[in-house]
Amino acid sequence: MKKVVLVDDDVDFCEATKLLLESKGFEVVLAYDGREGLEKIRDEQPDLVILDVMMPEMNGYDVCVVLKADPALKEIPTILLTAVDREMFQTHYTQHMGLMTEADDYIPKPVESAELVKRVENLLSKE
């Protein structure tokens, strides 16, 4: 069973998404902020990571930077998921130059459940 760590400070979103992914045969581990997310990723060694961008403690970009800099973790496919406006996202993106090429996918929120499942499966099948 493939394991996914989902990091998002929106508890409701996490729980609903957990149900969705579990129904598709994934094991889902939840974390509610960036720091906790990083701990869970290290502990669980998941097959895929989904990161919200705007979170307390540590935002999704920073988590992604740490992940991709760690030889033990950098191969884990990572999806950035954000409700941040496109324009703001682009600003963030330029500030964190190069980040997007390192995250493996970017999905704007809100996302259709079927679309999310498709993107997750796509990334995992590439391995």
């Binding site: 609903a16 998404t17 149900l19 129904s23 409700a83 406006d85 324009e87 809100p110 259709e112 459940s113």
Partner: peptide
Amino acid sequence: SMVSHELKSPLSSLLMQISVVLDGL
């Protein structure tokens, strides 16, 4: 920008929750 984020976040939860319930999960 603030509103967009503050509105879109709960709306994404809502959409995901409804979809999941609709799918019988």
